[in-house]
């Protein structure tokens, strides 16, 4: 491949020449190559973080300008507010439920799709389908399903003479509804990752297990899951972090209600800053959210660090 590339004319003293040139130009190149990205990250990631931190120590006016310095009092009032604490609790319940359910269902789909059956490819394709669903589409599909008068769930329970669940207006079931919708949205991606991992498990392991006479169910827990545990952990933590950032489904399906039951952290930031106009409080909540997510990301890095060398 290299033969076709243009040759430099003077190759008489390559090692000396290049070494001198190399050191001289590398930093220059670095500015060109790294400059744009660095500038963007400084402008839209580093600076805003510091600005958010700064704003969290102030009060802000209608236009989001800082007015009075209040020290840590925004933090104190937030941490002592029962409504914020319940949001935090709800968020934890939500992310745990979503990540566990996503992984369990993802494994079920992947294991089932990893059989050699006629037409299995169709199933595999369908299992990954929710990857193509964007958040507003998912919200519309599920809003219809959970609708109290025309929704499928309401009609089913009516037909079976069961009490109709007010899916989106009862605090407990609203959370369940949001969890169901989120897990459903996550399934396609999770399925693909886990399925990929399953395919790389050597077949010989199962053959050996068959010969020893280990049942299929035992094989699942003793062979399959340990072999893909790394992937499972990866998927779990990625799902967890993404779940912390949930916004779209909540915005369209419950608007954080009822009784703040689905007012998860990001939705709260939006509501406090961009509906109530309290930018200082939004900033304070942003800092707390960042701390929480940073912790989980560090865990993820630690795990990745084991597999990815620097």
């Amino acid at each position: 491949m290299l033969q076709r590339l243009p040759k430099q004319v003077d190759n008489s003293l390559p090692s000396l020449n290049l070494a001198a040139k190399y050191k001289l130009t590398d930093s220059g190149y670095a500015i060109v190559f790294l400059g744009p990205t660095l500038m963007l990250l400084v402008a839209f990631v580093f600076y805003p973080m510091l600005k958010t931190l700064y704003m969290s120590f102030f009060l802000t006016n209608d236009f989001g300008k800082t007015t009075a310095f209040v020290g840590l009092s925004n933090y104190v009032s937030l941490i002592t507010s029962s409504s914020y604490l319940s949001s935090l609790g709800a968020t934890l319940v939500f992310v745990l439920a979503v990540s566990i359910l996503t992984v369990v269902l993802g494994v079920a789909l992947a294991v089932t799709a990893n059989q050699e059956l006629k037409g299995i490819r169709l199933f595999r394709t369908l299992f990954s389908a929710t990857m193509g669903v964007s958040v507003s589409v998912a919200a519309i599909f599920w809003l219809f399903a959970f609708n109290p008068s025309v929704g499928v769930f309401a009609q089913l329970s009516q037909a079976l003479h069961l009490p109709v669940v007010n899916w989106l207006t009862d605090p407990k079931s609203a959370m369940v509804a949001i969890i169901i919708s989120t897990v459903w949205m996550n399934l396609g991606f999770t399925f693909l990752i886990i399925f990929g991992a399953l395919q790389s498990v050597p077949k010989s392991l199962y053959e050996a297990a068959d010969i020893v006479g280990i049942s299929k169910l035992t094989q699942l827990f003793k062979v399959t899951i340990p072999m893909i545990s790394g992937t499972l952990f990866f998927v779990m933590i990625v799902t967890l972090i993404e779940a912390f950032k949930s916004f779209g489904l909540i915005d369209m399906m419950t608007e954080g209600g009822p009784d703040n039951a689905t007012n998860l952290l990001v939705y709260r930031i939006y509501q406090d800053a961009f509906i109530n106009g309290n930018f200082a409080q939004g900033s304070t909540e942003s800092i707390l959210l960042t701390i929480i997510i940073a912790i989980f990301t560090l865990i993820q890095f630690k795990f990745l660090g084991k597999r990815v060398h620097y």
């Binding site: 958010t52 989001g64 942003s286």
Partner: peptide, 17 residues
């Protein structure tokens, strides 16, 4: 380190920017 900082938590200053 920037991968630890969720964009969702930076919308306020980014909006102003």
């Amino acid at each position: 380190a920037t991968m630890m900082l969720p964009f969702e938590a930076e919308v306020i200053p980014n909006f102003m920017t």
